Simulated assay, not measured.
Amino acid sequence: MDTQDKNTGVGVPRPISDGSRLSEEPELLGLAENTILTAPSDEISPEKEPKKSPTPFQESMKRLMRDKRAVASIALIVFFILLAIFGPPIYQHIGSPYQSPISGATVGPDKYHNPFYQELDQQDQFISGQHWLGTDSIGRDMFARLMQGLLVSMSVAILVEIVDITLGISIGVLAGYYGGWIDNILARFTDIMFAFPGLLFVILLTGIFGTWADDHLSSIPVVGPNGNARLLLVSMALAFTAWPIMARYVRGQTLQIKEQQFVEAARTSGTANTRIILRHIVPNLFSIVIVASTLNIANTIVGEAGISLLGLGVQSPGSSIGLMISDAAGRVDTYPWEVLLPSIVLALIVLAFSFLGDGLRDAFDPRSKD
Rank of each mutant, 00 (worst) to 15 (best):
K6F: 11
I16Q: 11
G19R: 13
E25M: 12
P26N: 08
A32L: 15
S41N: 14
I44E: 15
E47P: 06
K48F: 08
K52C: 00
S53A: 14
S53K: 15
T55I: 06
Q58P: 10
V71H: 03
S73C: 04
I74G: 01
G87Y: 04
Q92V: 00
S96M: 04
Q99K: 09
P101H: 04
V107K: 07
K111D: 11
P115W: 02
F116I: 04
Y117Q: 12
E119Y: 06
Q122H: 09
Q123I: 02
Q123D: 06
I127V: 14
S128D: 10
R140N: 07
D141H: 11
D141P: 05
D141C: 06
D141N: 13
R145A: 03
R145M: 04
M147D: 04
G149S: 03
V152I: 12
M154C: 02
V156A: 04
I158Y: 02
E161P: 00
I162S: 01
V163N: 03
I165D: 00
T166S: 10
L167K: 01
I169G: 00
Y177F: 15
Y178E: 03
Y178S: 09
G180F: 00
D183P: 07
N184L: 11
F189E: 04
M193E: 03
V202R: 06
G207L: 09
G207H: 09
F209N: 08
F209P: 00
G210V: 08
D214Q: 15
P221W: 01
V223E: 06
P225M: 00
N226R: 14
L233M: 04
V234G: 05
S235P: 03
A239D: 03
W243T: 06
I245R: 15
I257G: 10
I257E: 11
Q260G: 07
V263M: 12
G270T: 01
T271L: 13
I281R: 07
P283Q: 11
N284T: 06
I290R: 10
A292I: 04
S293Q: 08
T294Y: 05
A298L: 05
N299I: 06
I301L: 08
G306C: 05
S308D: 07
L309H: 11
V314W: 07
Q315G: 12
G318Y: 05
S320M: 09
S320Q: 09
I325D: 04
R331T: 12
D333K: 13
Y335W: 02
V339M: 12
P342T: 03
V350R: 13
V350C: 13
A352L: 08
S354A: 10
L356G: 05
G357E: 02
L360C: 07
P366I: 01
